[in-house]
Design a protein around this nucleic acid. Structure first.
Lengths: 116, 116
DNA sequence: ACCTATTTGTCCGTATGTATG
DNA sequence: CCATACATACGGACAAATAGG
C-alpha cells in the first residue's frame, strides 16, 4: 500500500492517512479480507506516531470500511459497498438543508437522531 | 456539573464521561448555549488526563450535542428544531442507509463530503 | 492594529491492559 | 504460555482559533 504524507499540509496526518487508505479500499486496490499493516509497523515505515495510525484506523472502522480486533489487526471489511442511490438521496437532503440554512452540524444531529 | 468516574469500571473513562455529560444535556440539566468546563480544568478537577476529557467532548461533538471551538470551549448545542420538509428527506436517507447497512458514521462522512 | 490569555487540535512519547492466535 | 496487535490512559509540546483589552 502506497501512502504518502505531507507533514506541511493543512489537513492533519491522520486525515491524510484515512483518506489514502479509504481511497485504496473503495477503489479495490486492497481487497476485502485483506489485512492492513500493523499500526506500529506502518508508523515506523511512515515515521509517524502509532497514535496517528490508530486514529486513522479507528476513523475507517467507524465508517465501516475495516474491522479492528486486538491481536488480529485491521481487516478490510467485506463487500466494498456500492452506495448506489443513497448518494442521490443524500444530495437532495443536502440541497434542502442548504436552502433552509441548516448548518452541517445541525444536519448531522438530525440524521443521527433519525437513525436511532 | 456533577460527574463521577469509576477507574475500576470496565467501561472506559472517556465513555463514562461522555455518558454522564450526555445525560445532563438530554435531561436539560445543562441548558443549550451553556459552556462546559474547559477540558484542562475538568481534567484537573476529576484527576484524569486532558486527552480523556477531549475525547469525550469530541464524541459528544460527533453526536451533535455540543460544539467545540478553539478559544471558546465546549458549548451545548441548541435543541434540534423541526425543519419541516427536511425531516422527510432525512427519513428517506436514513431508511436507505439502513437498508444498505451503511453505519451512521459512514453516512455522516458522506453527507459532510456532499455538503462541501 | 496589536498583543495577550484562553482553549481546543494535533502530534509525539511511554506504559499498561486485553483479546487473538 | 507466549507473541502479536489493538485499546486506553498518562504525560508533554507546539500550533491555531477565539476573545478581550
Amino acid at each position: 500500500m502506497l501512502i504518502r504524507l505531507d507533514p506541511a499540509s493543512a489537513t492533519p496526518l491522520f486525515d491524510q492517512l484515512a483518506g489514502s487508505i479509504r481511497a485504496s479500499i473503495i477503489s479495490g486496490r486492497v481487497a476485502a479480507g485483506e489485512r492492513l499493516p500493523a499500526a506500529r509497523d506502518l508508523a515506523t515505515s511512515l515515521d509517524v506516531n502509532v497514535h496517528t495510525i490508530l486514529r486513522a484506523y479507528q476513523e475507517l472502522r467507524d465508517e465501516g470500511l475495516i474491522e479492528l480486533r486486538r491481536g488480529r489487526g485491521a481487516i478490510v471489511a467485506s463487500a466494498p459497498r456500492d452506495f448506489g442511490d443513497l448518494t442521490a438521496a443524500i444530495d437532495s437532503v443536502v440541497a434542502e438543508a442548504r436552502a433552509s440554512g441548516v448548518p452541517p452540524a445541525a444536519l448531522a444531529a438530525l440524521i443521527r437522531e433519525a437513525y436511532q
